[in-house]
Amino acid sequence: MIASIQTLLAISMTVGVYLAAEQLYIKARRSPLVHPVIVSIFTLMGAITLLGWDYSQYQHDTRFIHFLLGPATVALAVPLHENMALIRKMAVPLLLACFSGALVASASAVMLAWWITGDDVLALSMSAKSITTPIAIGMADSLGGSGSLAAGLVLLAGAVGTLVLPGLMRMCRLHDHALYGFVLGVTAHGFGTAQAFEKSITCGAFAGLAMSLTGVITAFLVPPLVPFWLL
């Protein structure tokens, strides 16, 4: 047998739940509160608890899906390459903003989590909370945090960002679609990008670019700095 029945069941269930969650998301007019990832994760958590499976077994059975995160992350180079042309006109302010935004988003979350809770796994996982999930999982794991916890924090940051940022930008009178999208992409990754695309194509393209750049910059810059934030 190529794969056990348990493995086939776990994979079919994961894909099936995801497809159903996607339909629900479309029916709910793409509200971030019923984002397919959030709905799938909580449904599957309930399902494996009811079936009496433990997570390590489920993780082992779905490793084929998880494996594809590797090439999919490398594939992010393609849209990044295609979108880089966008920033030629104002490369300096955008790159500076991306570096500072990425650093503040990561450092402030790590330091606050460490001071308040003293939980090092939580603090280390917080370092990846503003970046796109595929990069966040790998980064948190290699830092000694938890990829799964980071995935949860990323979802939370996305939901918080899409709720809080539009009001904040209105207050600060930032209306330009390119800059607006860029801020959404740096601080709220894929959730922000989806919201930016609802505003306009330009807004979404800048958000997507900001999301990929922030992921790369954070993954390279943050790991050597994290030990200094946990003092």
Partner: peptide, 14 residues
């Protein structure tokens, strides 16, 4: 987004 569902389910450990 489907690809990071298995890792996300790991939240159950937290």
């Amino acid at each position: 987004t489907l690809l990071f569902v298995p890792a996300g389910v790991g939240l159950i450990q937290h």
